[in-house]
């Protein structure tokens, strides 16, 4: 089993996300995370899927997704030639004497405090997955009330290999 990040450029039609997620569920492929958003050209949506499987499965995933009529392009975002980011929001329970310590940890990670309540903080952190994991580990000593992750999105580096909207 290995993990792969695929980036898709798809037609921004109604139901396109359900067509893609439906393909994964009916063929038994894993989705670890999926993010979608409209691109600079509103006719298209960019989707980033993190999936896992053996080589045969991963090859099939790429081919089956490519076959969908709405899919313009699919490519693998490899860790060496791409950048990945994930955004996470963490609500931590803090007493007034714990607050400063949590803020210090957040500062080290260049995270932002985006909400302060009498007994809690909401921290926003953006980074690659290992940074996010490391940060969550450091908060182990505190009570995490709620946590929301976007799943990763990414882009390949450089201007080669860009799927243009129109040929």
């Amino acid at each position: 089993m290995q993990k792969k990040v695929f980036q898709l450029l798809v037609d921004n039609t109604s139901g396109v996300l359900s067509r893609i997620s439906g393909l994964f569920s009916r063929r038994g492929y894993n989705i670890e995370s999926i993010t979608a958003g409209v691109t600079a050209d509103p006719r298209f949506t960019r989707i980033t899927i993190v999936t896992s499987g053996d080589d045969v499965i991963l090859e099939q995933i790429e081919k089956q997704v490519a076959k969908l009529v709405d899919v313009r392009d699919i490519k693998e975002l490899t860790s060496t030639s791409s950048v990945y980011r994930e955004l996470v929001l963490i609500k931590v329970k803090v007493s007034s004497d714990q607050r400063q310590a949590v803020i210090s940890v957040a500062d080290v990670f260049r995270a932002n405090i985006i909400d302060v309540a009498p007994d809690s903080l909401i921290i926003e952190l953006t980074g690659n997955q290992s940074k996010v994991e490391a940060f969550i580990t450091l908060l182990n000593g505190y009570e995490i009330l709620e946590l929301a992750r976007t799943g990763i999105t990414g882009l390949s580096r450089g201007s080669d290999n860009v799927a243009y909207f129109d040929d």
């Binding site: 045969v56 090859e59 099939q60 081919k63 089956q64 490519a66 076959k67």
Partner: peptide
């Protein structure tokens, strides 16, 4: 004609 069939069951 369907690339997804190639390698699906046998490489």
């Amino acid at each position: 004609v369907d690339p997804a069939e190639i390698g699906k069951n046998a490489g």
